[in-house]
Design a protein around this nucleic acid. Structure first.
Lengths: 147, 147
DNA sequence: TATATTTAGTTAGCGCAGCTAATTAAATGG
DNA sequence: CCATTTAATTAGCTGCGCTAACTAAATATA
């Protein structure tokens, strides 16, 4: 069992640091992800489409926690880049379903490769234990974000 | 999909999840922070100014990892809201130094309080062990971002 | 010393991503 | 059959990142 921290972290401090870390992480990843031609929000949306299969626009917006009009624009751009396509919803004439094209699958894979390369570079000086710590913190964060 | 922390997490997966978590965290915090009249980037910059004392614009931009023109605009808005002021750099006529006003200190404190309240709400279902995990992951992340 | 170069910051102008309000078209219900 | 609700889009706003080009001050050099 790994040693516990000596004192309980103050929520105020954790909140601040989490906020700051998220901002700086995204500012960095932005540059890497640019190489794919897809911004962070587009990559994130594409990831959901690839993973969650054909999905309605409204559901995709909800999953990404943005409003439908914002998702409409993102999908339009993804479509014009040929990484997703729209198909009519079989059971509902108002809705469209968003699906990833083969190019979309390929592009996401490549983008992931780039981030991994960067991360591997970053992780250069870290040992396995630190990676585990990072992953465990991530699990907690993901739980928080699900609610 | 989270992996078991038993096995070594794949960097590819960790990279993806970190990316996604950062995006979703910021989208949420954005709404909370709006109440302070300061966006996430402004709060982040103000935090550096409050913490690192009077600081030159270029250094502030570097600390925030954005370009000087972007920081110029942020500082202008912070100034017009009365939370920072500019003073001439004693030793360099080209440079200005950015300092936080009392109002700036106060506002940052209030904003922190709001985020803490939100976090406390989020943390409602979590135990101390989870908070520790989150904090430890954060330490690792912060190390990565320092480089 | 006088001129050239470098450096700090700003201005101008672009693109992307969020939002709300209003619109269109399809589904649903009285 | 018409009224209401729902899915998505369009229009238009704001904020924040960027590069390119400019001004002014500091520094280096002939």
């Amino acid at each position: 069992m790994p040693s516990k921290s000596r004192s309980d972290p103050k929520p105020a401090e954790v909140a601040d640091r989490l906020h700051s870390a998220a901002i700086h992480l995204l500012r960095r990843l932005r540059r890497v992800d640019e190489a794919s031609g897809l911004s962070a929000p587009k990559l994130s949306a594409l990831s959901v489409v690839v993973f969650a299969g054909p999905i309605r626009l409204g559901d995709l917006a909800a999953a990404e926690q943005i409003r439908p009009p914002s998702m409409t624009r993102i999908v339009q751009q993804l479509e014009s880049q040929g990484v997703v396509r729209r198909e009519p919803d079989p059971g509902d004439g108002r809705a469209t379903r968003i699906a990833a094209t083969p190019k979309g699958h390929r592009l996401l894979k490549q983008g992931r490769g780039r981030r991994v390369n960067l991360l591997v570079e970053w992780l250069g000086g870290l040992d396995t234990a630190d990676i585990h710590k990072l992953e465990k913190g991530l699990v907690v964060l993901e739980q928080l974000l699900k609610k």
